[in-house]
Amino acid sequence: MNVPKSEWPSSLDDKELEELDTYLRRHGGDGDLMLDGVHGLLSAVAVGPLEVKPEEWLHEVLHDAFDDEDEGNRVLALLAKLNDSITAELDVDAYEPILGEVDTDEGPMLSAAGWCEGFSRGIDMRAALWESRLAEDPELMQMLGPVMALAVDEGVLQADAEFEKLSDEEYDECLGQLPEVLVGVGQYWQDRPPTEAEITAMAKPREGEEHPPRQRAGHWVH
């Protein structure tokens, strides 16, 4: 779908992204999601099998009490706008992942590590549904291939077998496929929604719910 930019959905502008990024960095600790991670989490929620309400995913994003009511209202408004923009951007082929930037010997480079970490945590919010379907339907696993490749390459996920690092070209190719992947996964769950048996199984407690802290560096790049 080719939609004129004038008709694209309202997304956070650079100033708003900087404001939200600054807040998350000021209040985040080891293992907490930064802006790229929050975008990954909300992206997984947007295309997932069942609705995840804000009161659920906000626990993954906010960890400190607000300094005052105005600050709280502002941060919540920015997060709501970020959340709403994802589905709207996917609908008009305007989605771009928010990525981190890391320093290397060759200079700053984009990194999908934070986005992938957030996406993984978004899946974890409906883990039983994702796991049962991934185990039964290789099509969904194949569809998520570019995300999995990036996540393994960045150490967010552990591969069952020895995994060769992606080349720069392969890495960029996987990044470029993310919008298509998200659209496809969202359509998959619309066409094949969770069964009653899967939803019932979701209520059972799972082992190992906690996420180990991970060191992260870099800043947001849109």
Rank of each mutant, 00 (worst) to 15 (best):
S167K: 06
A149S: 09
T200P: 01
A135Y: 07
E170G: 04
G184E: 01
A159N: 14
D124R: 15
R121Q: 03
V185D: 01
S167F: 09
G184Q: 01
T195G: 14
R192Y: 14
R126H: 11
I199W: 09
A197I: 03
E154P: 03
P138R: 12
E117R: 15
P146G: 05
S132I: 10
I123M: 13
D191G: 11
P179V: 13
D124A: 12
I123H: 05
A149W: 09
G118K: 00
D124Y: 12
E169S: 14
M148C: 01
L150K: 03
L178K: 06
E136K: 12
G155F: 02
L178Q: 06
E139I: 11
Q177A: 12
L140F: 01
R126F: 10
T195C: 15
Q142Y: 07
R121F: 00
Q190V: 13
Y171L: 00
E154G: 02
E139H: 11
T200H: 00
M202H: 08
G184H: 02
E169I: 10
Q158V: 13
V185A: 00
M202Y: 05
L166F: 02
A159P: 12
W189D: 04
A151I: 08
L157C: 13
D172E: 09
Y188T: 08
E173H: 11
D172Q: 10
R126N: 13
P179M: 10
E198G: 03
D137T: 11
L166C: 03
E154F: 03
Q187C: 05
D168W: 02
L175E: 00
M143Y: 03
E170L: 05
E180S: 13
P138I: 15
G122E: 01
C174L: 02
G145L: 10
G145I: 07
E154H: 04
V152K: 05
L134D: 09
M125I: 05
A135V: 05
G118V: 00
M141D: 10
F119G: 07
E173W: 04
L178T: 07
E154N: 03
P193I: 14
A135T: 12
I199Q: 11
T195W: 14
D172C: 06
R192F: 15
G145R: 13
Y171K: 01
S120P: 06
V147H: 05
D153I: 03
G184C: 02
E180P: 05
V156F: 00
S120T: 07
Q158N: 11
W130Q: 10
A201R: 10
A128L: 06
L140Q: 00
Q187E: 14
V156W: 00
G122C: 05
L166W: 00
D172A: 06
S120G: 09
W130K: 04
Q142P: 04
A159Q: 11
